[in-house]
Design a protein around this nucleic acid. Sequence first.
DNA 1: TAATCCATGTAATGAGTTACATGATTCT
DNA 2: AGAATCATGTAACTCATTACATGGATTA
Lengths: 206, 206
Amino acid sequence: MSLRYALLALLRVGPLSGYELQKQFAMSVGHVWHAPDSQIYPELRKMEAEHLIEGEEQTRGQRATRRIYHVTDTGEQAFLAWMHTPLKYARVRDPAHLRAAYLEAATPEAAREFFRSHIMQWEGELAQWEGELLRIDELANPMLVRRLAVTQPEDRERTIAFKRFTYEGLVERARGEIAWARRGLKLIDELDRSAGARADRDTARV
Amino acid sequence: MSLRYALLALLRVGPLSGYELQKQFAMSVGHVWHAPDSQIYPELRKMEAEHLIEGEEQTRGQRATRRIYHVTDTGEQAFLAWMHTPLKYARVRDPAHLRAAYLEAATPEAAREFFRSHIMQWEGELAQWEGELLRIDELANPMLVRRLAVTQPEDRERTIAFKRFTYEGLVERARGEIAWARRGLKLIDELDRSAGARADRDTARV
DNA sequence: TAATCCATGTAATGAGTTACATGATTCT
DNA sequence: AGAATCATGTAACTCATTACATGGATTA
């Protein structure tokens, strides 16, 4: 259900074709809400059927066409209504912490590998989000620049501030996950040592 | 796909009926992987069809029956194989941060309400996870106690350590979300002030 | 003329949510 | 006798993933 609001958020800045939208999506909203093109095209059609957006067919070259979508009044209202509606939080469903809770069933090497890939995963996200923070500060994000261009001067500060604030939160989360996983690696070392010590003691006794 | 491993993790401790499993689930793995009963019962049937678990019909009173499930060798192997398999990370899909990125479109009061409910949401999770941490330390979690009872003495330290470590991570995450949302509330105050100051200055000029 | 973009989908499957549905047993 | 709990599901729907499918336009 959030997908359509993510799409509306982008289209509110200005009309785009499905293809452009999909590209822009990956580089902006896609950082907080992933969607593949195979989901975006049908969703646009559905949104058009519900009159949230309108598409205009444009010719391209001799035979090809493309559809340029823009937000309707209904769509704008739906977006604002959603912004003023309490968010539904999804129930926890966290495969990484599920696995972490049962790591005693894995070999220490597999447990280490788990934490290492957790670190890599979140370092990837961190890099994305830090990059986005930089692009916000330097006004180097094209969608943000277009957004500011159609925003009342007195609202520009807010627009930038909330975007920045969002990515700050994501960056902190990523750092938290990385720190946790690093501590996980240390924990495995400690457990190894303490198991080793116990084994030594037992051998000594025998 | 994680659901079945969450179920296996619980059943590995000892046989349970679907109903008991579902109750235990909510009180243990459910803290990291939520699943309603309408999902658990069919999944158990599917897992039985794939020989990961076996169910034995038990009579209850005069007419009623219940099915007690236990993990088969195949199931045990499948669980261990999963534990040694790289985790698939789901793509980001974060409605809260999606909304946060566009809060300039909401009234300040709606934006405040958003952050307040974000805080409440995560305080709820935090309380759950801190409670679980306490129950781990006091060995007051029945599933953990049963787990330890069937665990080799030399593995008990690891078992407790990983469980503790998991919930520590969740607690930190919740605290992070809460801290972020509190800063969000402050940010709105600041933007309000700066907007107010601008308005005053403009009026003064006129 | 081949590669790369531009452009738009469908189809099958799986995972999860919500609502509905039913009946036995045990405890008070 | 009524409430709570035990016990087990089905059905309809939405959302998301993965794979497949096609073809025009542009540029090197």
